[in-house]
Computed example of a mutant assay.
Amino acid sequence: MSGESVYVVGAGMARFGKFPAEVTLEKMAVSASREALVDAGCRVRDIDGVYFGTVLGGSVAGQRTGAQLGLTGQPVTNLENACSSGATAIRDAWLSVKAGLHDVVLAIGAEKMTDRISGGILADASDLDAALGMIMASNHGMSARRYMHDYGATRAQIAAVAVKNHAHSVHNPYAQYQHPVTLEQVLDARPIAEPLGLLDCSPISDGAAAIVIASEAGLARLGVTGRPPRILGVGLVSGTIHDGARSVNEEDISRRGGEEAWRISGVSPTDIDFVEMHDCFTIAEIVRMEGLGLIPRGEGGMWTEQGHTSIGGKLPVNPSGGLLSRGHPVGATGVAQACELTWQLRGTAGARQVEEARTALAYCKGGTVAGTDGASVSTLVMQA
Rank of each mutant, 00 (worst) to 15 (best):
L345S: 06
S5V: 05
V275L: 11
E305F: 08
A40N: 04
I272M: 00
I253Q: 05
S126Q: 10
H140L: 13
K314H: 12
T372L: 04
G70K: 02
A93E: 01
P329C: 01
D271N: 07
E35Q: 11
L79R: 02
I311T: 09
I108T: 00
N81E: 07
E4G: 06
I211T: 04
V161R: 09
D150Y: 01
S169Q: 10
P191F: 13
L71M: 12
L323D: 07
A61Q: 02
P319R: 05
E80C: 10
A130Q: 08
R227T: 14
G312N: 03
G291W: 04
T88V: 11
G100W: 00
L232E: 10
E290C: 10
H179V: 13
L324H: 06
V170Y: 07
S31E: 13
S265K: 07
L69P: 05
G244D: 09
G291V: 01
K164F: 13
A362V: 00
G152K: 01
D206M: 00
S138R: 14
L198N: 07
G86K: 12
T372G: 08
L323P: 09
Y7N: 01
L79M: 06
L196H: 04
T270V: 13
E259L: 14
L232K: 12
S2A: 12
A351N: 12
G133Q: 04
A357M: 03
N172L: 01
I47Y: 02
G366V: 07
A220K: 14
T359C: 12
R227S: 11
G258P: 05
A123E: 13
T270S: 15
A175R: 05
M1V: 09
G258S: 07
H149Y: 12
R15N: 00
G62T: 09
G312A: 08
E276R: 00
G266C: 02
I213D: 03
M382F: 05
